[in-house]
């Protein structure tokens, strides 16, 4: 055992990927199952707030882009479920954990999409924050996760650009459109800043994840990078971020920013956000309404195999 653990730690140290058949500590496996399945669930639940605007997208081009984007998210969920399955857990079990509330998904998707501008704000801010978190995961020590993230990040950067483009169009449009864009940013900014999780001194799993090279940067480092990026991009949009304390700090070479409302953060994490119940209800309903379809597909596959064996 000592020996296996040493081999594992040496691999981590030398930046050699850990693959599914390699020995790994139970806690490493558990951490990855938790993180990867949570990530997969976030992709799937994340289809809902944006999917709600597919039927109302204002032009055919925007409609086509939005369908493609939400479909990409389903694809990301699929790679991530498949990647997590290499850690010896089935997709059904993971979905069951989501639907029973045992597994979490990103809290950001518990906020509503009230106007078309929200689709822009999600692309720019939510996907922007996701990219900040995900780019370092391309170098994650677990091979399947790292490879899935490389593919996912390519598509995410396109998603972010389309969100920015929606907001830029609205910002340069009529007064009503500009107000719509500003209102969406006002509502999505702080929840996006919260996507990086608790402050470093309140993030109990972080140190171990950093040591295992699952995580490469701390929550607060990534959050600062995100805020710096958005503060500059907001100027291009000619829209403002809703933080009066946001200001460039020449000494730190970073933007200073205001206090995060951690009460809201934990409230939403613990199931009391504006849409937690609605999102879960939509997933449960899709799952339950699809049960007869899955059963039929299984039954047909079995019959087909039996018929083929008879012929052979």
């Amino acid at each position: 055992m000592q020996n296996e653990e040493q081999i594992f730690l040496e691999k981590i140290d030398q930046e050699i990927k850990i693959e599914p058949r390699d020995w790994m500590p139970d806690a490493y496996r558990k951490t990855l199952i938790r993180q990867m399945s949570q990530h997969a669930h976030s992709e799937i639940v994340g289809m809902l707030p944006e999917g709600a605007w597919i039927t109302r997208a204002p032009t055919l081009k925007r409609k086509a882009i939005l369908i493609a984007k939400v479909q990409d998210e389903a694809g990301h969920g699929l790679y991530l479920y498949a990647g997590t399955e290499t850690l010896n857990i089935g997709r059904e079990e993971m979905i069951d954990q989501l639907l029973t509330g045992k597994a979490k998904y990103s809290s950001i998707f518990n906020y509503p999409t009230l106007t078309w501008a929200d689709i822009g704000a999600i692309g720019w801010l939510v996907d922007g924050a996701a990219i900040m978190n995900q780019v370092p995961l391309c170098r994650c020590s677990f091979g399947p996760y790292s490879r899935a993230m490389i593919r996912i990040c390519k598509e995410e950067s396109f998603h972010q650009r389309q969100g920015f483009d929606i907001l830029l169009t609205l910002s340069r449009g009529s007064n009503a459109q500009r107000e719509m864009a500003q209102d969406a940013i006002n509502r999505w900014w702080w929840p996006s800043v919260m996507m990086f999780g608790p402050n470093d001194d309140n993030s109990p799993h972080s140190a171990q994840s950093m040591a295992w090279k699952i995580k490469r940067f701390s929550n607060d480092e990534l959050r600062q990078k995100f805020i710096d990026m958005c503060a500059d991009q907001a100027k291009v949009l000619e829209l403002t971020l809703p933080d009066k304390k946001l200001q460039w700090n020449e000494k730190r070479k970073h933007y200073d920013f205001g206090e995060i409302n951690w009460h809201e953060f934990w409230n939403v994490v613990n199931g009391h956000g504006p849409c937690n119940k609605e999102r879960m209800a939509a997933r449960i309903s899709a799952h339950e309404n699809g049960a007869w379809v899955r059963e039929a597909a299984d039954a047909h596959a079995k019959k087909r195999r039996a018929r083929e064996q008879q012929v052979a």
């Binding site: 289809m47 999917g51 597919i54 039927t55 479909q71 699809g290 049960a291």
Partner: peptide, 27 residues
Amino acid sequence: SEWTGHGPILEQDIAISNIALDLVGQA
């Protein structure tokens, strides 16, 4: 496209969305 996000199986959610996308493209 009304199925996107609500399909019975993840792979088929992708398939029906893909067909929706093809049809909107033809339109």
